Simulated scan of single mutants.
Amino acid sequence: MRIRKNAVITGVGGYVPETVLSNKDLEKMVETNDEWIVSRTGIRERRIVNDANVATSDLATRALKKLLQDGDIHPDEIDCVIVSTSTPDYVMVSTGSMVCEKAELKNAWGIDTNAACSGFLYALTLGASMIESGRCKRVVVIGADKNSSIVNYKDRNTCILFGDGAGAVLLEQTEEEVGLIDSFFRTDGSGKENLIVTAGGSKYPASQETLDQNLHYVRQDGRVVFKAAIQGMTNTCREILRANDLDIKQINYLIPHQANLRIIQAVGEQLNLTDSQVKVNISRYGNTTAATIPLCLWDFKDDFKYGDKLLLTAFGAGFSWGATYLKWGKLRGK
């Protein structure tokens, strides 16, 4: 009988900048107020990089170093680093390679992926595949974004939503009945105009015209994204449950992308989950894009017990969305 070798999370790390941008701070920048922001998003504050020399790779590196420190892991043990980000340091040089350099990972190679807010889940599946195939023994998957670099702080519709941060997990192989079990993903490119940074790529390279039109900032149609996110996240979670012959009552926790508290609550309600089963930290960090799910895993890691069944789900630009089912293992150093 062939024993399935799963990829299991054995380490978690996170990092958010020290500078807090509160709703009260935003009241001084755009026409908005704390009550309006909280009632519509659930966000009270977000963390923002206040040093122009700090890039996404620095956020990712600090999350990775926290993971290594807490798990008593030597940098030479890491084989590969996958960084999911929408805000890479450079267009041509991968952020993953920068992280390997800054964290002094001598034996690792690094790459980037980009599926916006869904990116961490996509990257997690790629990392798990490397572990399951035996090509790598230890893979670090990082979700990191310096959203302040693409936010227009004169646009009250978007500047209230986003924060900066990074979260990282370590994947290793196990023959125990824990680890990543299944994923279900979908994309729909026709939704791209509803959540996008228009310029800066090969279609609309940087020019004076793109700068004058503020096309290098994120923009979104909130109503379209709101509806699509609830539907996409709920449906992919149901697909995972069906494919694995699971009842929602068997799920211990839902770890949703932290984009909007009303979206999170709607998904939880449609899945018939209690508030205590749905992990939420959006009030403190805002939407950190690819970092939201790993930051949740980092924040709430002490709540998860060996064998707990977790559903992770996200929705982001692209449109991209999906869900991952895993059983929690044992963290190094615990």
Rank of each mutant, 00 (worst) to 15 (best):
T19H: 11
N214C: 13
T113W: 03
I264F: 14
S202A: 11
D247H: 12
R47G: 05
T313P: 02
D145R: 00
G189A: 06
L273I: 02
K279G: 02
M92V: 15
T324H: 02
A115Y: 03
T113V: 11
V278H: 11
R4W: 05
K227R: 15
F226G: 08
Y153S: 11
I82P: 00
I48M: 07
N244Y: 06
G316N: 05
E18F: 04
I196R: 08
G14T: 13
A116H: 02
L312E: 00
F185C: 04
G110T: 05
T174G: 05
I37R: 00
N272T: 13
Y90D: 14
V54P: 01
D112W: 02
P256V: 01
L310N: 00
L170N: 01
I181W: 00
E193K: 14
L105M: 09
E132I: 11
V12Y: 01
M1R: 09
G42Y: 08
L195T: 03
I263C: 06
C100S: 03
T234V: 10
K305H: 15
T85R: 01
D212H: 07
V91C: 09
V151D: 04
L311C: 05
I255L: 12
L241K: 08
A206H: 11
D221M: 10
S22P: 06
D245R: 07
I37N: 02
A291H: 01
D245L: 06
R46S: 05
N214I: 03
R138F: 00
S86Y: 04
G143S: 07
S133L: 13
G307M: 14
V280K: 10
A314D: 00
V224G: 01
D72T: 10
G13F: 04
V16I: 15
G134L: 06
I230M: 06
N107K: 15
S320K: 07
E193G: 13
L124T: 00
